[in-house]
Design a protein around this nucleic acid. Structure first.
Length: 424
DNA sequence: TCTGGGGTCCTAGGACCC
DNA sequence: TCTGGGGTCCTAGGACCC
């Protein structure tokens, strides 16, 4: 048995924990740059505010219903997520953190327990420890546990816990679930399935296996087996090292000068290097991209991108920044209005395995490398102690291109200054 | 005026190996 | 007329997830 524990309207719920006056009030959280709606409280959903809707398109609706709007506050959500996961880890022998607001729990040893009762205990404990409401779905496969969780969320009579155990319970759930609501079935596959009159999860479970294998490939075949109660997706307890790390942002306004793009790209390069060091990994490939707005029809769309090997695998901010700046020069076209840029590192390997890899063309002795490594260690240590951004490379600057963040709440759990501000 | 960011996996096809 | 068998690696594109 698997349990899927999923936080309700996670970002909106995080904001409410620190602002209890917002209980039972419509609350939404915006994406970076205050662009789109990415989280909604139940009250906001009831007003017809859609997920992913651009904020400017529903501004009137938000104002007329006095909806409380927040910019996204990832330090807060990330820290709250950690607290939820730590609570869950104490409630099951194995836990797989699947996303910022979801985790699978291994319930295979709980055969003698009343699982519904245990699900209620999970909800109650998480609520008590963190203030975050969650729903619990339990079933013999991950895909069915996802489905159970969805039913628990949609139907109040479950009181937040849905257990699918008997064949009859599972069959009834499959019949009530539309094909597009199955975990792993997206828009394209839904269209394909509906055209074949496969409309419910029960239909997909009963569809000819050969057809599913041919059209939905191995991934779809696995989903079908999971719907039939045959578990194909095991618990993944160790998070594998990342294969790529990307830092990108839309700008708060149009950017036209190379200087401003350099500042943005430097900031993203520094962030990528920092994330690499946190993963204890090195990257051997670097990609830089800059883009004009995809929505502005008045001028031609431009998407400039370049990928190159780094001289040797590294997580050094300075090395990555220098390489990124050189690549930016190659894709910059004067006279364009840029709205977005990003840096991606890939070809990632663990730091430990590559300590002896040197560039064939390296001009500097390894000693210089060691010095740079130490500089990075010191920089990270200072930022850990005094808050991120306390010290950074001079080329990093977010003044001109900074994304909009006009409705940001305090970092209540991760920043002393913000806590003091709240008290004051 | 205003439209997010960060990932993974799979397949097919081409180039190459013995 | 007949033209092997078994691999790897890389890339682009397309699907999916939160």
């Amino acid at each position: 048995m698997f349990a899927l524990v999923d936080c309700n309207n996670f970002y909106a719920s995080c904001e409410r924990v620190f602002n209890p006056a917002l209980r039972l009030r419509p609350v939404v959280v915006l994406s970076n740059n205050d662009g789109c709606i990415i989280a909604r409280s139940e009250e906001a959903k009831a007003l017809g505010i859609q997920m992913g809707m651009p904020e400017f398109k529903c501004r009137a609706l938000l104002q007329s219903h006095d909806v409380t709007v927040f910019s996204s506050n990832y330090p807060l959500y990330g820290d709250m997520s950690t607290r939820v996961m730590m609570t869950l880890a104490a409630l099951a022998p194995e836990i797989e953190v699947y996303s910022i607001d979801e985790a699978f729990l291994d319930m295979s040893g709980f055969a003698r327990f009343d699982l519904t009762e245990y699900g209620r205990l999970i909800r109650k404990t998480v609520r008590q420890h963190t203030g975050i409401p969650v729903c619990v779905g339990m079933a013999p496969t991950k895909t069915l546990a996802k489905m159970a969780n969805r039913l628990a969320k949609k139907n109040p009579h479950y009181q937040g816990v849905c257990l699918l155990r008997s064949a009859a319970e599972i069959q009834a759930a499959l019949e009530r679930t539309k094909v597009e609501d199955i975990w792993g079935i997206g828009r394209q596959w839904s269209k394909l399935l509906q055209a074949k009159r496969i409309e419910s999860a029960a239909d997909l479970a009963a569809a000819p296996a050969a057809w599913v294998r041919k059209n939905l490939h191995i991934v779809g075949a696995r989903i079908q087996a999971e719907l039939q109660g045959q578990s194909c997706l095991p618990m993944e307890l160790m998070r594998p090292a990342k294969q790529s790390i990307c830092t990108s942002r839309s700008f708060g306004r149009s950017v036209t000068s190379l200087e401003e793009l350099q500042q943005a790209v430097a900031t993203f390069a520094g962030k990528c290097a920092f994330k690499l060091r946190k993963e204890q990994s090195l990257a051997s490939l670097l990609t830089v991209f800059i883009a004009t707005s995809p929505f502005d029809d008045s001028c031609e769309r431009y998407w400039g991108t370049r990928t190159a090997s780094l001289p040797c695998p590294t997580s050094d901010s300075i090395a990555i920044l220098q390489a990124a700046q050189a690549m930016l020069d190659g894709i910059f076209r004067a006279g364009k209005s840029y709205r977005k840029a990003g840096v991606m590192v890939s070809g990632i390997m663990p730091q430990a395995a590559s300590s002896t890899t040197l560039s064939l063309f390296a001009e500097e002795a390894p000693a210089a490398n060691e010095r740079d490594t130490k500089i990075m260690q010191v920089m990270d240590a200072i930022n850990r102690r005094y808050g991120s951004g306390a010290v950074h490379l001079a080329a990093e600057n977010s003044e001109s291109w900074k994304p909009h963040q006009e409705r940001l709440s305090a970092r209540y759990t991760t920043r002393w200054d913000d806590i003091i501000e709240v008290k004051g």
